[in-house]
Simulated scan of single mutants.
Amino acid sequence: MQLYRGRLIDHLHLVVRDVKASRRFYGAVLEVLGVPIGGEAEDYFWADELFVSSADSRAAQGVLTGRHHLAFQAKDRAMVDAFYQAGLAAGGKDNGAPGERPYHPGYYAA
């Protein structure tokens, strides 16, 4: 069976130092976006095409992911605002309050 959805990325694997803290954060912000956690174990979790594991998981090969930037799509500004609040409440770092960004006209992000 051939799987092709026409998207740029099939999946993304992040290897993190603290998988429990990452689970809290991603669980909170993805809930706002309407994306459920698809599965989890002690050393990993996944949601849609995002897979997050600890460095000692079988898939990680013992190497942490370096600095990264992920941009999730939201349906409207209210969802961006809620995502921002949920991220902060779940231990996320504030890299900029919700507002327009210069990426293209009308781009609203946090």
Rank of each mutant, 00 (worst) to 15 (best):
36 P>W: 07
15 V>S: 01
92 G>Q: 07
62 G>L: 00
59 A>H: 04
5 R>D: 04
100 E>R: 08
55 A>Q: 08
109 A>C: 14
69 H>V: 08
68 H>V: 10
56 D>Y: 07
8 L>A: 14
62 G>A: 06
11 H>N: 12
35 V>F: 12
26 Y>V: 00
42 E>K: 11
79 M>Y: 01
79 M>L: 02
71 A>V: 08
79 M>P: 00
109 A>H: 04
17 R>G: 13
23 R>S: 01
58 R>L: 06
37 I>A: 05
76 D>Q: 05
19 V>A: 05
39 G>T: 14
46 W>T: 00
85 Q>K: 15
40 E>V: 06
5 R>S: 02
99 G>Y: 05
25 F>R: 06
40 E>D: 05
55 A>G: 03
30 L>N: 12
105 P>L: 13
81 D>I: 05
43 D>N: 13
43 D>S: 11
15 V>K: 03
110 A>I: 00
80 V>H: 07
20 K>H: 10
21 A>W: 11
24 R>S: 01
45 F>T: 00
36 P>I: 13
66 G>E: 01
20 K>S: 08
83 F>K: 09
4 Y>Q: 10
91 G>T: 14
77 R>N: 10
44 Y>Q: 01
74 A>E: 00
95 N>L: 15
29 V>Y: 01
62 G>M: 00
28 A>N: 10
63 V>C: 02
86 A>K: 03
7 R>Q: 14
95 N>G: 15
73 Q>L: 09
89 A>F: 06
79 M>T: 06
89 A>I: 11
103 Y>F: 14
75 K>T: 02
3 L>Q: 08
97 A>F: 02
22 S>K: 06
87 G>M: 07
11 H>G: 07
35 V>P: 00
5 R>G: 00
25 F>S: 01
50 L>S: 10
28 A>C: 04
13 H>K: 11
71 A>T: 11
25 F>Y: 11
8 L>M: 09
8 L>T: 15
26 Y>F: 13
5 R>Q: 07
5 R>V: 07
43 D>H: 12
76 D>S: 12
40 E>G: 03
56 D>T: 13
94 D>Y: 04
44 Y>T: 05
24 R>T: 03
21 A>K: 15
86 A>R: 04
93 K>N: 10
12 L>Q: 12
6 G>K: 04
29 V>I: 14
55 A>N: 02
101 R>H: 12
51 F>V: 05
57 S>V: 08
2 Q>G: 13
20 K>Y: 09
82 A>W: 15
94 D>F: 07
62 G>Y: 03
42 E>H: 11
106 G>K: 04
67 R>E: 14
97 A>K: 15
17 R>N: 12
73 Q>F: 09
94 D>A: 07
49 E>M: 06
56 D>L: 09
79 M>G: 12
77 R>G: 12
34 G>K: 11
6 G>M: 07
27 G>H: 08
77 R>P: 06
72 F>Q: 05
19 V>H: 10
52 V>C: 12
74 A>H: 01
41 A>V: 12
86 A>I: 01
67 R>Y: 02
102 P>H: 03
24 R>K: 12
17 R>H: 15
4 Y>M: 10
62 G>R: 03
57 S>C: 06
34 G>M: 13
18 D>R: 04
69 H>R: 05
34 G>V: 11
7 R>A: 09
103 Y>S: 12
35 V>E: 03
80 V>P: 05
48 D>A: 08
72 F>M: 02
96 G>C: 10
46 W>R: 07
45 F>V: 00
